[in-house]
Design a protein around this nucleic acid. Structure first.
Length: 154
DNA sequence: TAGGCCATCTGGTCCT
DNA sequence: AGGACCAGATGGCCTA
């Protein structure tokens, strides 16, 4: 850590310019509700309280046969993460699903905040276009490698 | 118009 | 039981 100021002085001035030219503070206006997302985030409608099943878990059909995914959504594939675990599916209410959607949006929001913070830390040309998430990650890898080499060679 | 990027929804799995 | 995390699917927006 003590060597850092010295390292910074050694950093090529063009790199410093990259950093100072960063202007990624603008927040994408997309966080406004999208048209398809106009569900009620504070669901209180009694009709939404209906449980789809008595238990919150339902057992799939016997003997390893994949149960049909009768609920809405895209098809899933078992074994994506290596092993098939339980055959019990959690059945949730519409209210619970909406609450989970809200939590997921918040989670992705904080993830994007972290990406924005990383974009500000990573040196870049005065981009007319902001870095995508994958570009940000890859540039960060290169940047860290560069700084690591710099530290080791001084 | 095709392709890249992103937000969102969704269900499965993990974890507390 | 339920929240966090994850990845697939989908649709919208933007740019070359």
């Amino acid at each position: 850590p003590a060597a850092l100021p010295a390292v910074c002085r050694l950093v090529d001035s063009t790199l410093i310019n990259f950093v100072s030219d960063m202007n990624l503070m603008e927040f994408p206006p997309k966080y406004a509700l999208a048209p398809k997302q106009q569900v009620d985030d504070t669901p209180t409608s009694p009709s939404n309280q209906t449980r789809l099943n008595d238990s919150s878990w339902s057992r799939d059909l016997e003997d390893g046969v994949r149960a049909e995914h009768v609920m809405m959504g895209s098809p899933r594939y078992y074994g994506t993460h290596g092993h098939t675990r339980s055959k019990r599916r959690r059945i949730i209410t519409v209210v619970q699903r909406q609450a989970a959607n809200v939590r997921e949006r918040k989670r992705m929001f904080s993830l994007n905040e972290a990406f924005d913070e990383l974009r500000r830390k990573v040196p870049t040309f005065a981009y007319e276009k902001r870095l995508s998430r994958i570009e940000t990650l890859r540039l960060a890898i290169v940047y860290i490698s560069f700084m690591t080499d710099l530290l080791e060679n001084t």
